[in-house]
């Protein structure tokens, strides 16, 4: 039922969106084919790690790059090929890294954590240590289709993608609403959306394998999840090259994720604030 509502919202939003294009807003988002863009931001930011006993992922630098050819494009680690492109509609074949794998990026430290008493789904009391920090998961790359509608007030993205790297064989479906705003030299983008992840993704990243489950914790499959999120981007342009930017995103993981023994929290932030130079 939950997914039927989710899909209904997707279809309704795509069909009911007005057909005309907001010229002013689209002007901000047009790019000349053959253009390579590079922006480097120096500041502070990173990803709050929702995994148990994992360090947050932080960086003083945030590089962003993009290249647009006649059909092909690259935006950071997203690769895409335009199948159909009109003033209002974009249909792309595209691929991107599944973000769950990023949380396992710091798996080398040696902290040992007792799990006694911290999980409710243990079937026996235990004080045997599990080294959470040594749990490793592979990054996966998802490939699929992205459909965008550019309306006068809103940009709507709907994407479906599947693991093409045979890591977990899972699928993701995303729905994103984007509202761009501009006031003189200040641009703002407000985004909200939700991401569906299949049980294969959740079970791969958020369940212990038999080898890792040394104390035989009873685990319940997380199952399919839908996690909503909001994102705010602010950027003040001093000139075409220099700007000051702030990006903040909050994600609420589906409540089903509470059953994962690997997770410490079911909400996390990502963000970055800093000074940017665009080449």
């Amino acid at each position: 039922m939950k997914y039927a509502v989710f899909l209904s919202i997707i279809i309704a939003s795509l069909l009911s969106a007005p057909a005309s294009l907001a010229k002013n807003n689209s002007e901000q988002a047009l790019v000349k084919p053959g253009t390579f863009d590079f922006r480097l931001t120096a500041g502070i930011g990173g990803i709050e790690n929702p995994l148990k006993q994992r360090d947050n992922i932080s960086s003083p630098l945030l590089p962003e790059f993009s290249y647009y050819g006649d059909k092909f494009y690259v935006e950071n680690l997203v690769l895409g090929y335009s199948l159909y492109e009109s003033e209002n509609w974009l249909i792309d074949a595209y691929g991107y890294f599944n973000n769950d794998g990023y949380f396992f990026a710091d798996s080398t430290s040696e902290k040992l954590v007792s799990i006694a008493g911290i999980t409710q789904n243990t079937w026996r009391a235990s004080k045997v240590a599990i080294n959470f920090q040594e749990i490793e998961r592979d990054l996966s790359y998802l490939g699929g289709v992205n459909i965008s509608h550019i309306g006068p007030w809103l940009r709507t993205n709907f994407s479906m993608a599947k693991d093409v790297t045979s890591v977990h064989h899972g699928e993701e479906i995303s729905l994103t609403f984007t509202k761009p705003l501009q006031w003189r030299s200040l641009t703002a983008t407000i985004q909200t959306g939700a991401t569906y992840k299949s049980s294969k993704i959740n079970d791969y990243y958020y369940q212990l394998t038999d080898t890792e489950n040394t104390i035989l914790l009873r685990q319940i499959s997380v199952g399919d999840t839908i996690s909503p999120w909001v994102n705010l981007n602010l950027r003040y342009h001093f000139n075409p090259n220099w700007s000051l930017g702030l990006s903040l995103k909050k994600t609420w993981l589906d409540s089903k994720m509470k059953s994962s023994v690997l997770l410490d929290k079911t909400r996390y932030h990502t963000g970055f604030v800093g000074v940017s130079y665009r080449y």
């Binding site: 047009l30 084919p33 935006e75 990502t270």
Partner: peptide, 11 residues
């Protein structure tokens, strides 16, 4: 001109 996708970092 082509519309920029503006995916940013998918995090």
């Amino acid at each position: 001109l082509r519309p920029r996708r503006n995916f940013g970092w998918i995090l």
